[in-house]
Each structure stands twice: as structure tokens, then as C-alpha cells.
Design a binder for these strands. Structure first.
Lengths: 266, 266
DNA sequence: ATGTCTTTGTGAACGCGTGCACAAAGATGG
DNA sequence: CCATCTTTGTGCACGCGTTCACAAAGACAT
């Protein structure tokens, strides 16, 4: 899980568990694919397989939304698409601003999965004056000075932060002050926000580190036992497909970290 | 939560709970920042605040790793950095390949948070022949034909998929066949992999949809009640900072979805 | 050496999420 | 109209994760 919610301690917002909400987009994606193939109905078993979850879980999730299935038949695809979209609030238009137009910000601006879900990129904002006016994904980049104006005039409630870690909190504060109440944070920092503001974070390197943990485990316990002694990491061992692999001895003395995504400052 | 593990049903790998593993990178980041400021020790309370978690949770997490703290004082920053790094397997070198060098793939290649964590981008792979040889982040892009060779010769165990959804499963299969056992998937698809292979996924639009859900909730129940009728979404309502805001009526008839990240095919 | 003060490490309780397993519901065929 | 078959919806039990609260442990001052 690349993310985790901040504030609001597990308040299940009106009966729908948080875990269920997190799976609704998954179901929606699978259902959309079925819809495009003009499949009229789908059983919980089939849909669960397509979404990569347990069928009992899926049925329980849907039961929180109401009884939208027909026993002996399954669920009506189109109807379910509508119900989930409505529940997630995707039937309305969500203007979004992206702050920090570096590599990642540009990737997000170009991401097709937004527009098709009711999200509209209202503006791209960057602190670099030389980027002002330059079109990215067909949208001209605007300077940070315009942030407050843009947010207010477009009624933006959702902001995406793709700046370096150092700039994230300040950008966050300004977004919140201007009226944003939901933030998707790609900067590797913990943002502090007032109550009532939701923050979700995506940290690319965290995911990789979790994978590394399990990968190390798979590599066998003997290697772990060896480094568990005082030995300061005797280079990679590669029990299985050991090729040459340019090895490095340690990762701690690796120069300045900074821990920033490769994006332009904002 | 942008992610979720696939397969391996909650097996706590040698006593360390999955939830704890997922937080270790958070602690590590906070500790690294302290280390750079030459802070010698830190209390669970301070570190928890910096990492954005509960202090009791942090102490329990650390208790799974062993007793590394000193009562009345706190934790030794440097020692803890080393212990967590070792536990996560970051003291060794992890060669990684990125497949699909579009906007997102390029952003990942440029991402600074990898190298500082023991991850080394061994190769960039794309299916587009015209990209072959073109340097991205200082690394020449190689054609997909080379995938198996690259993985084998570099002893790569971790692969990152940043291709469109349509190409993801095939890329995944080839990576696994070549020896990759951990995959970080940015393509909006459910990947099926054999047992023993870990998959973590990051879906940008899912995070945004979860935010939209809570945002809709905040906007008040009256608007939800209105659309709950047969009315096909009466445009945005903006209870609070209602500006003009270019409104759109519906998001369902929005043209072809495709649901692909804006990257080149691989 | 002894007492006080700070902070860790953890036992225990609680709540949420998951998955089993089955009864109820409806479709379908005779 | 009845029997059978499929599939939903959910009661229930279990396990994981979180949090509280406190005893144990060590630092530090006197």
C-alpha cells in the first residue's frame, strides 16, 4: 500500500468501510472493461477474479452499497458502473490542480486515467518562471503566484503535489488556505494539515523497499543470518541466478539523499 | 493506499507483521533526515511525530525488530538507520529494470529516491524501436527484445512495469520467466503471477477516486441526496467556495477510456 | 548509593477486516 | 405449479492491527 490516510481515525463515513471504499475503484475498472465488451451481467465470482479479490469480499462490499444483484444471475454491469460511480462521486466534475511540473508532474498531466473518471486538470502550476506558458499535455503551465487565484476561480477542492520534498509543505499550506480540502501527495514528506483536510500519499520508493524486504526473505535465511552478525553487509549474494552484477558495499554512505522526486521546484 | 499485495495471504514473514514492514520505510526516511542533521538520539514520541504515526505503534513496530532503544533516552539514530536498512534488505544492491519508458517511466528513471535506497536502475526497456539508444536519465533505452538477456545478465529480481495496461501482462510474464520475482506495477491491470512472485501496484487514479469519495462526503449530504434521485448529475454544486467553475454535466459518456497511463508501449 | 524522572517495551482489550458457509431468493425447465 | 439449480446476501468466527496503560529499565542528580 503506497498510501495511508492522514487524520480522521478510521471513521467509516456513513457505514461504508474504508477498506471497501479503497476497492470500489478496482471494481469500477473491471466493470468498465466488461461494459466496453458489452457484457450485460457478471457474477460475483467472475468480477472478483477480474478485480483480483475474493468473491465473498466483493459481495460483502456491494452489500454496503445496497442490494444491486439478482440471485441466480449476478450483477447488471451498467447499473453497477453507475452505482459505484455515483458512490465515489465520479458523476460530477472534479477540477484538479497539479503543482510541480517536473517529470512526474508531466506524467500525471498526461495520464489518461483522470479525465475518464470525472477528473479535469484545471491547471498546472510550477515555481520555475521559465516554465510559465509552456504547454504540457496541452495545458499551459502557470506560475505559483497564480495558485490562490486558480484554486478559487475554478472551485478546486483537490490538489496534487508533485514537488520536491522541501517545497511540499508550503505548497500544501497555500492550497489549503485557498480552499483545497483533499491532497494527493507524491513528495516524500509527511504533510501536516488541519482537521477536515484529507491527505493521501504515494511514495514510489516505499513500494520498492517493501518489495526488497520480501525479496531478501526469498533469497534465503542463510544470507540474512550471515549479515545478522557484525559483518557490515558483505555485498550482494544472489543465491539463485547469480550473474556478475556490479555490486555496491553499502547504501548508507551514498552521498546527499534529499529524497526528492525528480521534478522541478514549485 | 495505492497498493496492495497480491498472493501470499497475510503470511507474516518471520514474525514481522506486514503492516509493520510497510511502515519501516517511513521510519527510515524520518531517521535519515535526523541523521543528516546529526541528531544523535530520538525518542519514540519525536520520531513518531516526524513519521506521522502513533508513538505506541512505532514502539511496537520496533519491538518486532528487537530492543534497540534505551529507556529514559530514546533510540540511537545511526544504529536504527542501520538496523532498519538491514531488515529491509537495503544494505545490498538491487538492480532494477524499468519497462515502458513514457512519461511515467522517465519520471521513475529520474527519481532520486531509488539510488539512495540501494536500488540501481540496471536498464530501461521500451518496445518502441525509435527509442532504442536514446538516453533517459543518462541511461540508454534498450529494446524489449533484450529483456530476457538484460534480466539474466544483471541478476535482476525486481522489475517495474510502466507500460500501458494492454502490454502489462505480457511484459510481466516475460519478466517472471526471465527470473524476476518482485514486480512493481503502475499499469492499471490486475497481473496474474505464479506463486512466489510478489506484485505491488500503484494506481494513480485510484487514489484520486478515494479522495473524491471523501470530498463528496464533505460537500454535504444534501447534494448526494439530490443526485441519488434519477437526476443525471446536475453539475457541480460547490457548497463552500463556489466560484464560477467550468462545469461538465456527466463523466460517463466521456469517450474511449482505455485506462492507460500516458507512457509509450513496451 | 539512593531516589527521582524519563522513556521504552509489552500485556491486554478492542475493533476492523476477512473468509467460511449457508440460508434465502430468484431463474429456469419440466 | 413445482422442483431444481444457480448465485446472492449475510451471520458468524477468527485473526490481525491498533491503542491504552503500566511495569520495568536505565539515566541522572544529589
Amino acid at each position: 500500500m503506497a498510501t495511508g490516510r492522514t487524520h480522521r481515525p478510521a471513521t467509516r463515513s456513513r457505514g461504508i468501510p474504508e477498506a471497501t471504499v479503497a476497492r470500489l475503484p478496482l471494481y469500477l475498472r473491471a466493470l468498465t472493461a466488461l461494459s466496453e465488451r458489452s457484457v450485460p451481467t457478471v457474477s460475483s465470482e467472475e468480477l472478483a477474479a477480474a478485480a483480483g479479490v475474493n468473491s465473498a469480499k466483493l459481495r460483502k462490499d456491494f452489500s454496503y452499497l445496497g442490494s444491486y444483484g439478482t440471485r441466480g444471475v449476478g450483477y447488471d454491469v451498467e447499473y453497477l458502473v453507475y452505482q459505484i460511480s455515483r458512490e465515489l462521486g465520479l458523476t460530477q466534475d472534479w477540477p484538479v490542480v497539479i503543482v510541480g511540473i517536473g517529470n512526474l508532474g508531466a506524467a500525471l498531466a498526461n495520464y489518461g486515467g483522470f479525465a475518464s473518471r470525472g477528473f479535469r486538470v484545471a491547471a498546472l502550476i510550477d515555481a520555475d518562471p521559465s516554465m510559465a506558458g509552456k504547454p504540457v499535455a496541452g495545458i499551459p503551465v502557470q506560475h505559483s503566484d497564480e495558485l490562490e487565484t486558480i484554486v478559487r476561480e475554478n472551485g478546486v477542492h483537490i490538489g496534487v503535489i508533485a514537488t520536491p520534498a522541501g517545497a511540499a509543505q508550503e505548497v500544501c499550506d497555500r492550497l489549503v488556505a485557498a480552499g483545497v480540502t483533499s491532497i494527493l501527495n507524491f513528495a516524500p514528506t509527511v504533510l501536516s494539515v488541519p482537521d477536515g483536510v484529507d491527505v493521501r500519499k504515494v511514495d514510489l520508493s516505499i513500494e520498492l523497499q517493501i518489495l526488497a524486504f520480501h525479496e531478501q526473505r526469498k533469497a534465503g535465511e542463510e544470507a540474512a543470518a550471515r549479515t545478522a552478525a557484525g559483518v557490515p553487509a558483505p555485498a550482494a549474494t544472489d543465491a539463485t541466478t547469480a550473474a556478475d552484477g556490479a555490486k555496491r558495499t553499502s547504501a548508507t554512505d551514498q552521498g546527499p539523499d534529499g529524497d526528492v522526486p525528480a521534478v522541478m521546484p514549485a
